[in-house]
Amino acid sequence: MANWNDPQPTRTGFGTSPSIDGKSLGQTASYDMGLRRYMLSIYNYMASGVLLSGIVALVFASSGMAEAVFATPLRWVLVLAPLGFVMAMSFGLNRMQTSTLQMLFWAFAVTMGLSLSSIFLVYTGPSIAATFFATAGAFAGLSLVGYTTKKNLSGMGSFLTMGVFGLIIAMLINAFFPMPGLGLAISILGVLIFAGLTAYDTQRLKEAYAHVAGTEMMGKVVIMGALSLYLDFINMFQFLLSILGNRE
Rank of each mutant, 00 (worst) to 15 (best):
L58V: 01
G196E: 01
W76G: 06
Q238E: 11
Y200N: 04
L227K: 07
I128V: 06
D32A: 06
G225Y: 01
T28F: 06
F133P: 10
F233C: 00
S63V: 00
G190E: 03
V191Y: 02
Y45C: 01
S17H: 13
L144P: 05
M224T: 02
G54N: 00
G157W: 02
L192W: 06
S115H: 11
I20K: 13
A210E: 10
V110A: 12
F133M: 14
I186K: 04
T131N: 12
L205C: 02
V145K: 10
M156T: 14
L142W: 06
A226S: 11
M224G: 02
M236P: 05
E216R: 10
W76T: 03
L231T: 13
T28W: 06
V77R: 04
K150I: 14
L104C: 10
N94C: 03
M1C: 15
F165V: 14
S63Q: 05
P7C: 12
L205N: 04
L229N: 11
M89Y: 04
L184G: 10
A213E: 04
L192V: 11
A136V: 11
V56N: 01
G64P: 08
F120R: 00
F108V: 01
D201N: 08
V77T: 08
G181Q: 05
L192T: 08
A138T: 11
F14E: 08
V122R: 04
N5R: 14
Y123K: 03
A57K: 00
L52Q: 02
V56S: 03
P180K: 11
Y147V: 07
Y209K: 02
T12M: 14
G225A: 04
I173V: 15
L227Q: 09
F14S: 08
L58T: 03
G146F: 02
G166E: 12
A68Q: 08
S24F: 07
D32K: 05
I223F: 03
F177P: 08
N44F: 13
L244Q: 04
G219W: 05
N246W: 05
H211K: 13
F60E: 00
I243H: 03
E67Y: 01
A129S: 12
A210D: 14
L240M: 14
A210R: 13
S187N: 08
N246L: 12
M89I: 05
D201R: 01
A81M: 07
A2T: 15
P126N: 07
N5E: 15
Q203T: 05
F60S: 00
G64Y: 04
G214Q: 13
K23Q: 15
T28R: 08
F159T: 15
G214A: 10
D6Y: 09
F105R: 01
S117T: 03
L172G: 11
I20V: 15
L182P: 09
